[in-house]
Computed example of a mutant assay.
Amino acid sequence: MKFTYLRISFLFVILILLSGCLYPNGELEKNQVPNEAQLNTIQHAIEQYQEQTNGLLPIKTKENDTPIFEKYLIDFSALKEQNIITEIPGNAYENGGVYQYAIINPEDDPQVKLIDLRITEEIRRINVQLDIYRDKHIYPPFGEEIADGFYSVNYKVLGYEEPLTISSPYSAENLPIIMDTDGKLYVDYRIELNNALNQYEHQYTDGDDIRFLLANNTPFVPAYSFPYTIRNGEPVFMQD
């Protein structure tokens, strides 16, 4: 009888532990998808914040040379201090999610967008291997030149078995990770930009930064990208 009671108690504890493990996993799945309602909520919060602060934006201070799409990150604590929001979106990095909330067009028409932090993590992981390689070699591990000043990455010398890619936040495509002459890594969005040029109405011409075609028409910004323009109807790297 005592043994049966102990066994039942043990199974009860196990069930509690398992249910405790499953719940966070369910929450984690929800935190890995963009949520239009959450985006709209924060968009309204940004607009309300501007009304209460004479046009200021609740953004974190970043260096001036920070790339445009990673520069204006939303400061949720500022929104809370103004009693505009009571909780941070579940899919936000600050709440255990995989997205950073950012603002584009801050001066003219502030819009709330998402940075997929899985891209950030993959770039960081490759940079670790890149730093190890650069400690022993003079030049970065250049692969084939894909455009003037841009190269594929020689993934084999970094210890990888396959070419370096990242899952696109826009589609099921795998986007190449490339580097410039200084060995800085970028995501090559030309596949998605080509699709966007055909999908969305636009008036972009040679010299315009067409990355905003993705940023303005989708929930995501093209993080870790080099500026692109349009030439002969196709996306090309914007050269100085």
Rank of each mutant, 00 (worst) to 15 (best):
Y99P: 03
Q100P: 06
Y101W: 08
Y101C: 11
Y101P: 09
Y101A: 14
A102F: 15
A102D: 13
A102L: 12
I103V: 12
I104E: 02
I104M: 06
N105Y: 03
N105H: 03
N105E: 02
P106I: 10
P106Q: 01
P106E: 04
E107H: 03
E107Y: 04
D108F: 06
D109W: 11
D109E: 11
P110G: 12
P110A: 12
P110K: 15
P110Q: 13
Q111T: 11
Q111R: 09
K113D: 07
K113M: 08
K113E: 06
I115D: 07
D116Y: 04
D116R: 09
L117P: 10
L117V: 02
L117T: 01
L117A: 05
L117I: 01
R118M: 11
I119V: 15
I119K: 11
I119M: 06
I119Y: 10
T120C: 07
E121M: 07
E122M: 15
I123M: 03
R124W: 02
R125V: 12
R125Y: 11
I126N: 03
N127H: 05
V128F: 04
L130T: 15
L130F: 14
Y133P: 02
R134F: 01
D135E: 06
K136E: 11
K136T: 09
H137M: 09
H137S: 06
H137T: 15
H137Q: 11
I138F: 02
I138Y: 01
I138D: 10
Y139D: 06
Y139P: 05
Y139W: 07
Y139V: 07
P140E: 14
P140H: 11
F142T: 15
G143R: 07
G143Q: 05
G143E: 04
E144W: 01
I146F: 03
A147D: 13
A147V: 14
D148W: 10
D148P: 08
D148T: 10
D148R: 12
G149N: 06
G149M: 10
Y151Q: 03
S152T: 11
V153S: 04
V153I: 13
N154C: 04
N154R: 10
K156A: 12
V157M: 02
L158N: 05
G159R: 10
Y160V: 00
Y160H: 13
Y160K: 04
E162H: 13
P163R: 08
P163I: 12
P163M: 09
L164Q: 08
T165R: 11
T165F: 15
T165Q: 00
I166P: 14
I166L: 06
S167F: 13
S167H: 15
S167C: 11
S168H: 04
P169Y: 10
P169W: 03
Y170A: 00
Y170C: 06
A172V: 13
A172K: 13
A172E: 10
N174C: 04
L175Q: 05
L175M: 15
I177Y: 05
M179W: 08
M179V: 12
M179N: 09
D182G: 02
D182T: 13
G183I: 09
G183M: 09
G183R: 08
K184M: 13
Y186A: 06
V187Q: 07
D188E: 04
D188A: 03
R190Y: 08
I191Q: 01
E192N: 02
